[in-house]
């Protein structure tokens, strides 16, 4: 047990990681895993892949696109939400707090359906919306998906940013103040960067959670990677193979997100 624990606590370089992997029981487990993969490749049905590959690529692209857009927009919205809760007067902080509580207290699926079916049934009754330039977009599903996921990310991140703004060392802000730095410059150069640095690990986790929320938009007819797997299932009655492949895809994307955030954390001076 002592040896195993020291192997875990060693610094994780590529050489050490390799050595940790080469313990006897891990070699046996890797061999079993390899066997399982080979069995999956041989015994299960994969002949549907060529037919659905273009659609799957399109779906994959749409998943990533939705993830990136909603995370960026949601984070931009979270900054004022966090700021309002951290230092805002009551007439700004109270609505921000209520928004975050409501978003965090109700299921995302309900929010998506409320926006899509609710707004979607309301808009056609209003003449000037139907005659406006935006109407061709508002008739599609993806604006509602993007809106719902953005608001959800903003709600969760607003709470995170509230803590982050509060955690920045007061002395630094006072020093900037003493130098006569304008308030906005102080916010841009000192407060925001330090707040973001403090919550980078949390943000990484939240981004993976956001990735795991994206398949919900398939329920409002947005064709992303999850919807493609559902279509394969209903077209060919093959149940497990598309789901296994889908899970592997999500694990790869989650791994890439974790890796990106770790590199980002390493580059930021701590």
């Amino acid at each position: 047990m002592g040896a195993a624990r020291s192997a875990v606590s060693e610094k994780s370089g590529p050489m050490n990681a390799f050595r940790a992997l080469m313990q006897p029981h891990r070699i046996v487990m890797l061999a079993l895993l390899l066997g399982a993969v080979i069995w999956c490749a041989v015994a299960l049905r994969w002949d549907w892949i060529p037919e659905y590959a273009p659609l799957a690529l399109e779906g994959l692209w749409r998943t990533i696109w939705i993830l990136v857009v909603t995370c960026v927009l949601g984070f931009l919205l979270a900054i004022p939400l966090g700021l309002a809760q951290a230092i805002g007067p009551w007439y700004l902080s109270a609505p921000a707090r209520i928004f975050c509580t409501v978003i965090r207290g109700t299921p995302l699926l309900l929010q998506i359906w409320l926006l899509y079916y609710g707004l979607g049934s309301l808009f056609p009754q209003i003449p000037w919306i139907r005659s406006s330039e935006l109407w061709p977009y508002l008739r599609q599903a993806w604006p509602y998906a993007v809106l719902a996921l953005t608001l959800s990310y903003a709600g969760y991140e607003g709470e995170v940013m509230r803590g982050a703004f509060g955690s920045v060392n007061k002395g630094q802000l006072e020093a900037a103040n003493a130098f006569g730095m304008p308030r906005f410059t102080m916010f841009r150069r000192i407060w925001l960067p330090q707040a973001i640095r403090n919550v980078l690990p949390t943000l990484g986790g939240e981004t993976i959670l956001q990735l795991k929320a994206t398949p919900l938009v398939a329920t409002i007819t947005v064709v992303e990677i999850y919807a493609v797997s559902s279509r394969v299932r209903s077209d060919t009655f093959i149940v497990y193979e598309p789901l296994i492949l889908l899970a592997v895809f999500y694990m790869i994307i989650a791994g890439i997100i974790a890796l990106l955030f770790r590199r980002f954390e390493d580059r930021v001076p701590g």
């Binding site: 795991k212 899970a247 989650a254």
Partner: peptide, 12 residues
């Protein structure tokens, strides 16, 4: 379990 969406896990 923590890397795969709940929706996919629920189906599987």
């Amino acid at each position: 379990i923590r890397a795969v969406p709940e929706l996919v896990l629920i189906l599987i």
